[in-house]
Nucleic acid binder design. Sequence first.
DNA 1: ATGGTAGGCTCCCTA
Length: 261
Amino acid sequence: MVTIATWNVNSVKARLPHLLDWLKQSQTDIVLIQECKCETDKFPAMEIEDLGYNLAIHGQKTYNGVAILSKFPLEDIQRGIPDFEDDQARYIEAVISINQQALRVASVYVPNGQSVDSDKFPYKLNFLHHLHQHAQTLLRYEEPLVLGGDYNVAPYELDVFDPKALDGTVCYHPQERALLRTMLHAGLYDAYRLKHPQARHYSWWDYRGGAYQNGEGLRIDHLLMSAQAIDRLSECHIDETTRKWEKPSDHAPVVATVSLT
DNA sequence: ATGGTAGGCTCCCTA
């Protein structure tokens, strides 16, 4: 059994104690993290390596930044979506060898978009378009594939606390939901939703307005898997433990267990 | 109620 998680940590330096504690207690094999908010050479690599992880980092100062933590060896590291010019560090991909079997993974941080009338919103749609194009390329390999990350999109009504009020706002706008659902209809499977078809469980809660205490969240962090990976999925859950800790990330980890021999 | 909180970094931007 191999466990794989995605977690937007909102600053790897500010969240290092939480990250280390969570890694120790959860013993997750592969962790895809987003919003590291630090340059590659300033990444707290030693503390994480000391817990037995290999690292692939695509860092950036102040904003963005993604990384892959893996107890198995990492190969063929790719930074950025191929054929997509982007000065923001939002995508890193690697091949993980597990008992001579290849599992391709990526840590993805889709732009938030800020608001629908912002110029960041078309950038978000363009990013999703290129992510979809690249996913199509990867799916043609017919391998176990996990594209995990903060997608900043809640695909269905069940994924937001107030679908009527939020309809048309960023993270729940028809255009971005359509783009994410295009990926889901083109051969990628949403691991959490597959295992919990009716559950209303969120992965992100705004820091503002006591959103977590009020149960006002969105399910925007996803583990999207190819058929070859989803066929081996035995379990998937959202781990709210860390969201209850002092000074938490606004996101909770999404964790899947896959049987790879 | 056009706010609220958090992180990084600079007196503001992003989420």
